[in-house]
């Protein structure tokens, strides 16, 4: 056996079923445990409360979870390449603020996504061309975007275009529209991650970075810088989409609606088994992670528990899930 080193700690042999359960040696990471946690919470709630299984509550759950699901999926693209985007919360707030500026929807909605793409592109350029650490690059972007948002809209107010409100609150064939939002987002992100080279390249880049061989994907012909840049653009655009959804729900612009959303998104991604060192993670894991958090929030509401204990439980689940995953890299 080779000697243990910081990069290659000696690890006891584990039976293969345990390895599968813990997501070891898999590119998808540990997603079975979060799924189990989500199912356990759902089962517990359906046994202890009457309302949980009602159609109204389930649709409500989907609506509540949607902004987090969308943001977390976007965040996952960046985390897969070993990055991090702390500016998504500000981008969400900015999107609601722009939608509430007043004006025709066909101008405002493209403006939201163009601006988000621009923010993502600047993040990506600063990270890839100027070699700034992603945490720092996106943190400064968070401040700048939040500042601009507060200039546009110091306090919440204004009204968003009717079509945005209708797209969130309406129903189609008796099914609330957020369900269709969910399906569309899942299809789009599945296409990006598994139906295009983009996703494969992200896994290649992230895997190289996680194992300390930064240039390996580049040497195999992957355009590293371009794909990293596109990952940040994707992340920002998903955040803008979440902003549009939220604007439709709160019917106005709010400079604080996205506050600390980046931390929730990172938490959801991490609960879903995606590793922050890059290269390991999955779309279904991320959705499960976001659902665990939404179920916790929903359950606390239904059982009238203190909303504050929910924060503690969220943190404890995060510690449990990441504590069970093993990785080689030490540090960030």
């Amino acid at each position: 056996m080779p000697p243990s080193s910081p990069d290659h700690p000696a690890q006891p042999m584990k039976p293969s079923y345990l390895k599968w359960l813990l997501g070891q040696g898999s590119r998808q990471g540990l997603w079975s445990l979060p799924l189990f946690i989500a199912l356990a919470i759902a089962l517990g709630l359906s046994l202890t409360t009457q309302q949980f299984t009602s159609t109204g509550n389930l649709f409500n759950l989907i609506t509540q979870a949607m902004p987090l699901i969308i943001t977390a999926i976007g965040q996952m693209f960046v985390i897969l390449i070993g990055g991090l985007d702390l500016s998504v919360g500000s981008v969400i707030s900015l999107s609601t603020a722009i939608l509430a500026l007043g004006g025709p929807a066909y101008v405002l909605i493209p403006a939201v996504f163009l601006l988000a793409a621009l923010i993502g592109a600047v993040n990506g350029l600063v990270v890839t061309r100027l070699n700034v650490h992603p945490i720092i690059a996106t943190l400064s972007m968070q401040y700048i975007v939040l500042g601009v948002t507060r200039i546009l809209r110091p306090v919440s107010g204004g009204t968003v275009p009717d079509i945005v409100i209708a797209s969130v609150s309406g129903t189609l064939l008796g099914i609330p529209l957020p369900v269709f939002w969910g399906i569309a987002v899942l299809l789009l992100s599945w296409k990006l991650l598994h139906g295009a080279r983009f996703g494969l390249h992200l896994f290649a880049i992230g895997g190289g970075i996680a194992s300390g061989m930064e240039k390996v994907a580049h040497n195999f012909g992957v355009a590293e810088r371009r794909n990293i840049l596109l990952a940040y653009v994707t992340c920002s655009c998903f955040a803008a989409l979440a902003g549009v959804f939220l604007a439709g729900r709160i019917v106005s612009g709010d400079p604080n609606v996205g506050l600390l959303f980046e931390l929730d998104a990172i938490t959801a991604v991490a609960i879903g088994g995606t590793q922050l060192s890059g290269g390991v993670g999955s779309l279904h894991g991320t959705v499960i992670g976001a659902l665990v958090m939404a179920l916790l929030a929903n359950g606390m509401n239904l059982t009238n528990m203190s909303p504050f204990i929910q924060t503690t439980v969220k943190g404890a689940i995060l510690l449990l899930v990441v504590g069970l995953q093993s990785r080689k890299k030490m540090g960030l």
């Binding site: 700690p9 991090l84 945490i135 931390l263 990172i266 938490t267 991490a270 590793q275 922050l276 060192s277 924060t311 503690t312 969220k314 943190g315 404890a316 995060l318 510690l319 990441v322 504590g323 995953q325 093993s326 990785r327 080689k328 890299k329 030490m330 540090g331 960030l332």
Partner: peptide
Amino acid sequence: RVSAVIVTLAVSI
């Protein structure tokens, strides 16, 4: 070997 961002964030949460 847990990500430092996640551990310290979780502890704070």
